[in-house]
Amino acid sequence: MARILIADDSETITTLLATALQSSGYEVEVATDGNQAYQMGLESEHDLAILDQLMPGLLGLEVIDRWREAGIETPVIILTGVDDERTAVESLDRGAVDFVRKPFRLPELMARIRQRI
């Protein structure tokens, strides 16, 4: 069973994503800030991480940087604000495999997740 880490400070988003992913047969772990996400990434392996860019503690892109420094190569999908074009592009430059703008459409995000796992 594929394991996915979701990190977002919005409980609404983590609940929605966790519900949808668990129903599709994925094992889900949830972090509510960047530091926790970074730590969870170090402590256990994940097949994919979905990181919000704007979180308390480390930002989504900073989590990627720290993971890469620590040799963690988990593929990451970054969630960005709707007007945050620069972050969207930067996330690919910094090693994310994809980005999704909020508010997102669940079927589209699920398709992107399936593509990466």
Binding site: T12, I13, L16, P103, F104, R105, L106, P107, E108
Partner: peptide
């Protein structure tokens, strides 16, 4: 409250 939270983050068919 829960409805409002969802209303602000959803789009498309979920909305």
């Amino acid at each position: 409250d829960a409805i409002i939270d969802f209303r602000n983050v959803l789009a498309g068919s979920e909305l």
